[in-house]
Simulated scan of single mutants.
Amino acid sequence: MNLSEQTLLISGISGFIGLRTAELAIARGMKVCGLARSAEKAKKAQKLGAEIIVGSVTDPAIASKACQGVDIVLHTAGISQESGSLKHFREVNVGGTVTMAKAAKSAGVKIFTHISSAMVYGFNYPDRVTENGPLRGENNPLCQTKIEAEEALLQLHAPPDFEIIIIRPGDVYGPRSIPWIVRPLHMMHQKLFALVNDGQGVSNHVYIDNLIDAIFLAIEKEAYGEIFNITDGQNTSWKEYFTRLAKIADLPVPLSLPKEEAKLFIRVREQGQKLFRKKPDLVPETVDFLSRPYAYSIAKAQRILNYEPKIDLEEGMRRTREWLRNTDIKTELNS
């Protein structure tokens, strides 16, 4: 499929993945429209030339309106934080995904590409785990609802009229990434960031533009009904990742804490913040995310899509450093 002149709807267009996808899609000659939670958050996408509809992915009327006249839907909207209410996660990550997919199907949209997460494998998985799993909910709302959303979505797959593609990204970093760039740097500046078990866990990093390349490849190659793990294909330790991150911000390498000590510290801090009615900036579950021991396999994407990450970690960090020079981290964290 030739993507130029196709109309692409991006749910969550004001988010990290959605906004950069809009920018690169417009550069490829695509017509881009987007669904955003608020007009304020959508201003950057509007400046790029995207048409915006304001509303929630859980609202059937809004979803139906957004899908009219669209060729492809890229569903990026969802909750991706480490913890929270399972009910709320399920409402957005499962209910919102199904609502958008049903609206797209009813509107005659041919292709629905869903941004899931490699967190469907949980925290304990085989080395180089493939798209065949196993999948593990881990009693974590993010892991669990990403699994449920995929299962519900695949039931709507109805070739050749309505085709589903599912992308499972790893740890997406780059300019504007809250979990892997902005928040860690903010914590480092406050001297509150520490490596877990000397950073021995594996970072399944993927630079934002590499991820978007994979998304476009999957659509171009009409890989319908398929699921793909997408990372940079490296076996990078969190120690190396965060050492590089500290370096581009001219900060010292973070100290290390054993896993259980790190969790205890975060629990105490979390309770203190709640006592003063502040939203916790870290949760104990973060430690589990930083303790994953293995890399995910991207062999399927390499074989079927000819996917090869173009931007390595050194170049990705260099681009991120350029962005940081003109960015206030605290403002970005609260945007």
Rank of each mutant, 00 (worst) to 15 (best):
A246T: 07
K247G: 01
K247P: 00
K247M: 08
I248A: 10
D250S: 11
L251K: 08
L251I: 04
L255A: 11
S256L: 07
L257R: 00
E260G: 01
K263Q: 13
F265G: 07
F265I: 10
F265S: 11
V268T: 08
V268N: 04
V268E: 11
V268M: 08
R269S: 05
R269F: 06
R269C: 02
E270Y: 03
E270R: 12
K274S: 09
L275F: 13
L275R: 14
F276Y: 11
F276Q: 13
F276K: 13
R277D: 12
K278H: 15
K279T: 15
K279H: 09
P280F: 10
D281F: 12
V283G: 11
P284N: 12
E285G: 01
E285T: 15
T286V: 12
V287K: 00
V287P: 00
D288R: 00
F289C: 09
F289K: 08
F289L: 14
S291H: 07
R292H: 05
P293R: 11
P293Y: 00
A295K: 14
Y296C: 13
Y296F: 15
S297Q: 11
S297C: 04
I298D: 00
K300T: 02
A301K: 01
I304R: 14
N306H: 15
E308H: 14
L313W: 02
L313V: 02
L313C: 08
E314W: 01
E315V: 10
R319Y: 04
R319H: 07
T320F: 09
T320H: 06
W323A: 04
W323T: 04
R325N: 10
N326T: 12
T327Q: 13
I329Y: 13
